[in-house]
Amino acid sequence: MRLIAVMLLGVVLMTSCVRKKKEVVEPIDTSSMVHEVAVKKVLQANAYTYLQVAENDQEYWIAVEKMEPQLGGTYFFADAMEMKDFKSTDLDTVFSSVFFVQKLSTSKAASSPAMANPHGSAQGRQSVELDQSIQLEPVKGGITIGQLFASKAEYAGKEVLVRGKVTKVNNEIMGRNWVHIQDGTDADGSYDLTLTTDASIAVGDIVTMQGTVAVDKDFGAGYFYHVIVEGAVVK
C-alpha cells in the first residue's frame, strides 16, 4: 500500500508540472483598434518578453521584443497577431494563445495598427526605415532587392539569390526566423526584403541567402507581403 501511495503521489506531481507548462487564456476582444492593458505578470526569454495582461474583464498573454515593463503598469498597443499553441523554447512553455505585438507604448496616441505586425506592417507597407548608407553589389548569379520587387511576378515560385545587410530580425515566430535585409536598391519605394529562415542571423550582418519567392502572401490578420522569400538558407 505504501508503494502504491508513493506512485500515486508521483503521478499527481508529474501532472501538476505538465499543467504548469500550458498557459490558458480567453480570446482577446479585437473590436478595439487600440488596446489598453495592465501588466499582471512578466516572463523574460532570450529575445522576447512575455506579459500576462488585463484588459477590462479579460486576461491574456502578449509577447514583445525584449523590454523591461513595469509590473502593474498601463500600456497600449494596436492590432496583434495571435499564435495558438505557441511553444516558447526558452521558457519550455506552451501558450494556448499569445499575441505578438511589435511595441508597447505608454501613450495611446503613439499606438497605431501599423505598429502591431512583428514581421512587417499591415498591407505590405515598409516598416523598416531606409538605411541610405547601405550600398551593396549583388552577388554573382543573384539579383538585387529592387529587381525582385520590380519583377515580382517573374520570380514568383522561383528560387533567388540575394545579398543584403540585416536591418531587423524577429526570431521564433510561426516556427521560423524573420529577417529583413536591404542592399541600397528599391522599386517604387519598396527597399526592405523579408526572408524566413531557420538560420540564426543578427542585425548588422551582411548575408547572402537563397530561398523561394512568394508574392502577395497573406498570413491573415492584415499581415500581407507583396514579396517575401521563404525557406531561405545562408550561402
Rank of each mutant, 00 (worst) to 15 (best):
Q58A: 12
S105L: 05
A80R: 00
G164K: 05
A116S: 09
L9A: 02
A232Q: 02
T30Y: 06
Q102D: 05
S121P: 00
L13K: 07
Q147N: 07
A232L: 01
K168W: 14
T106P: 03
V25E: 04
I143A: 14
L130P: 14
F224A: 13
Y48N: 06
V233N: 14
E230H: 06
T49A: 03
I28D: 08
M67V: 10
S151N: 10
T197P: 02
A221T: 03
Q135E: 10
K103T: 02
N46F: 15
P113L: 07
P27V: 00
N171P: 02
V11N: 02
M115K: 13
D205T: 06
D183A: 00
T196M: 00
Q126V: 09
V179N: 01
D183W: 00
M115W: 15
V42I: 08
S111K: 04
V94Y: 02
A232T: 03
S97N: 08
L148Y: 11
A80C: 07
R19I: 10
L51D: 08
A109Q: 04
A109N: 15
A54M: 14
Q52D: 12
Q126L: 09
S97Q: 03
V101T: 00
E36L: 06
D183L: 00
V234P: 00
V53R: 00
Q182H: 11
L130Q: 14
A187I: 01
R2N: 14
G220F: 05
E23G: 12
K66C: 09
A202V: 12
E154L: 10
E68W: 03
Q147Y: 12
M115I: 10
L8I: 06
Y223G: 13
F86R: 13
R125F: 14
V12F: 06
V39R: 02
G204S: 05
L161F: 05
K103I: 02
E82H: 10
A63F: 01
L3C: 15
M115D: 15
E26Q: 15
Q135I: 07
D131W: 13
V39K: 05
R163K: 13
F149Y: 08
P27C: 01
A199R: 12
V94N: 05
V215M: 11
C17T: 08
E55H: 07
A114S: 14
H35W: 08
E23R: 04
T93N: 11
V6C: 12
V94H: 06
D183H: 00
G184I: 02
S111T: 08
I206K: 09
T49D: 10
V11A: 11
F224E: 11
S88V: 06
